[in-house]
Each structure stands twice: as structure tokens, then as C-alpha cells.
Amino acid sequence: MSGDAGTEQVVRRGRPTGDHEAKRAELLKAAASVIAREGYANASLRKVAQRAGCTTGAVTYYFANKEELVTALAESRFDTYDALLEAGLDRTDIKASFERWLALTTGDDEFWPVMSQLLAHARYEPAFAALIERRYARYREVHTSILAAGQAQGTIRDDIPADLLADQLSAMGDGWMMMFPFEPERFTPSRVQALIDAAITLISPTPGNTSRTSGS
């Protein structure tokens, strides 16, 4: 990965003192801040270290290079997605799930700008693209199970397979995420709520719809 002067690959230094996981989380937060403000291409281990208030050597103890750091950042973001979805597995309220997801992303000014940068970067890095594909597949799998449960209960339209609905909802969310950094004024709290309501209307059973699962 290119850094400030060629390949940014540094030998790990001696073990720093303090809480290992807390320090990793601090560095990932610093990396997100740098990427959100300067973009992926302009992010470097040196800038992350400056943002975190430490040396570059301290960063490379936890992350050998920029690629490892960014991969860990992407994994942490998808871990957050997974935790959010897992929390709703015992319920079929897809609207609540959408609201929790958007509360997470709109509550952090850096969330959408960072994710859009990571998704754009994945196009040019096969290994990173494989990570995104794997984590998105898991995201859609869990989302599909929630939608399928809603179909069984009659709260979600069942004339379209749950996996297709999951793909559609994911695409809608990704579209909002990609546009948010450019048009934040479109995503006021009231309009975000209107977008959620519109999405729920699209996946709700329509009057007179013949249930595919009941066979009626």
C-alpha cells in the first residue's frame, strides 16, 4: 500500500504498555477520522499516528501496514452491522431494524463517508473486495432470515422472495450511504424517517395480494 514515501511497511516495535484492545480501537477510530476527512488515498500510518497522538511505530505494533489497518477498520464496521442485526433476530420488526441501522450511521458524522471510501477502494484491491463480499453475504443472509420470518407472520409481502427483498433493501441503504457525503441536507431526521416509512411501504403486504406461502 502506498504511504507518504513509497510502500508504508514498517517492522513492528516492542510491545506498548496499556490495554491492547482499547489501543486498537483508538487507532481504528483515528484511521476512520483521517479517511473521513482526507479520503482513503490520502490516509497514511503517519497521519493516523498524529491523529491518535502517538508515534508511527506505535501504530505498526498493532497494524503492520495501511492495508492491515484498513482491513481491520472494515471488519469492525461489519461487526457493528452484525451486532445490530443479531439483536433483532428474535423480532420481525424490519422497520425497527432500519431505524437502528440509520441511527447508528447518522449518529456518527464519519460513518457514511468512511464506508463509502472503503467500498470504492475495494474495487481496486481483490483481497479487500473478497472481504467486503464475504461480510456483505453474511449481512444479507441475516437480513433475509428476518424478512422471511416477517413473511411467515404476514407483516412482509411474500410475493417476492425474502432474499430479493434483502438485496433491494441493502441496495437502497448503500445508495443513501454513497450520497450522504455529497448531499447531507437530503438526510435530515424528518426525511430519514420518511425514507424508512417509504421503504417499509414497499415491502409491506398489498391489499388483495394472494399469499404465496399459504397457497390460497
Rank of each mutant, 00 (worst) to 15 (best):
G88S: 07
N65V: 00
E75P: 10
S116Y: 06
E110N: 04
L164D: 09
E75Q: 11
A149G: 14
D93H: 03
G57H: 02
L85A: 08
R46A: 08
L84N: 05
L45A: 05
A148R: 10
S116M: 10
T155W: 08
A130K: 12
T71I: 09
Y136Q: 15
H121F: 15
L104W: 02
T55R: 01
C54F: 02
E141T: 12
I160S: 10
A152Y: 11
A130L: 13
D93N: 05
A43R: 10
Q151L: 09
D82E: 13
A149T: 09
D82T: 11
Y40M: 08
D159W: 13
A122P: 11
I94M: 14
A52D: 02
A49F: 00
P161R: 14
V70N: 06
A127I: 15
A103R: 03
L73K: 01
T105K: 03
R46Y: 06
E141C: 08
E125T: 14
L45T: 11
I132S: 15
S76W: 06
Y124W: 12
M115Y: 06
D109L: 07
A72D: 03
L73Y: 04
L118S: 07
D109A: 10
A129H: 12
A130W: 12
T56W: 00
L102T: 08
A103E: 04
L165G: 06
A137G: 12
D158H: 10
Y124I: 10
G150E: 10
V142A: 15
T80I: 05
S116K: 07
L89P: 04
A149C: 07
E110R: 04
A166Y: 07
E125I: 14
G150M: 09
F63R: 00
I94L: 15
Y136E: 14
D158M: 09
R77P: 07
I94G: 10
E141M: 08
R123I: 14
S76H: 08
A43V: 01
L164N: 12
A41I: 09
Y62C: 00
S116Q: 06
A87T: 00
D108S: 03
E133D: 15
Q117C: 08
N65I: 01
R140A: 06
R135S: 12
W112T: 08
L89W: 04
P126Q: 03
W101I: 08
P161M: 11
E67W: 10
G154N: 11
D93I: 00
R138M: 13
I156M: 07
S44H: 05
L104M: 06
A166M: 06
A49G: 00
A64T: 07
S44K: 04
S44I: 01
D93M: 02
N65L: 00
L84C: 08
D109T: 06
G154H: 12
P126H: 04
N42H: 12
Q151V: 08
I160Q: 12
A64C: 03
R138A: 13
V59F: 00
L164T: 15
T60E: 01
F78N: 14
M115L: 14
D108E: 02
A72Y: 02
D82H: 11
N42S: 10
L118T: 09
E99N: 01
C54H: 02
D79Y: 02
L102N: 06
E110Y: 03
T80G: 01
